[in-house]
Amino acid sequence: MSRSPGRDLLVGVFVMLGMGALAYLSLAVGGLSRQGPSGFLLTADFDELGGLKTRAPVVISGVKVGQVQSIALGDDYRAHVTLDIDPRLHLPQDTSASIVTAGLLGDRYISLQLGGDPAQLKSGDTIAFTESAVLLERLLGKLVHSTDVAGDAGKQE
């Protein structure tokens, strides 16, 4: 077949488009760019994660500011969660972290509530105030047992 610069150009465009799509998928969607730590790491200990996973978002007032980097069982048998946070933020020392659910059945994520302490958290610090995940089924169980209405509800549980 004859050499045609026009066709080469189109093939080049095609390959660039394909590579661009691959790059978008792996960088933006797959999260390749956020594999490494941003440098600002905080840890928090929880009694109950309730299905929190790594790479779950960390939000302040609903705005994503970081993600869960790793989850491990600490020496005290509590869940030891490392958060990777935007280093530009200045978080007060008495910031608290709670595990919340998006919607009734949605994914778990971590919400940070800022305190009023003038001292700021540094990388590697531990968030002292934490609130564990609320397990819906445990809550329901408690409700059923505590109301203790004679008969049906209790028996079914």
Binding site: S26, V29, G30, G31, Q35, R55, A56, K64, D107
Partner: peptide, 18 residues
């Protein structure tokens, strides 16, 4: 829009899915 992309990004894993 942000919810859409956050849920997309947090569920698609580079190693397993892509």
């Amino acid at each position: 829009s942000g919810t859409y992309f956050t849920s997309l990004e947090s569920s698609v894993d580079l190693r397993d899915d892509l």
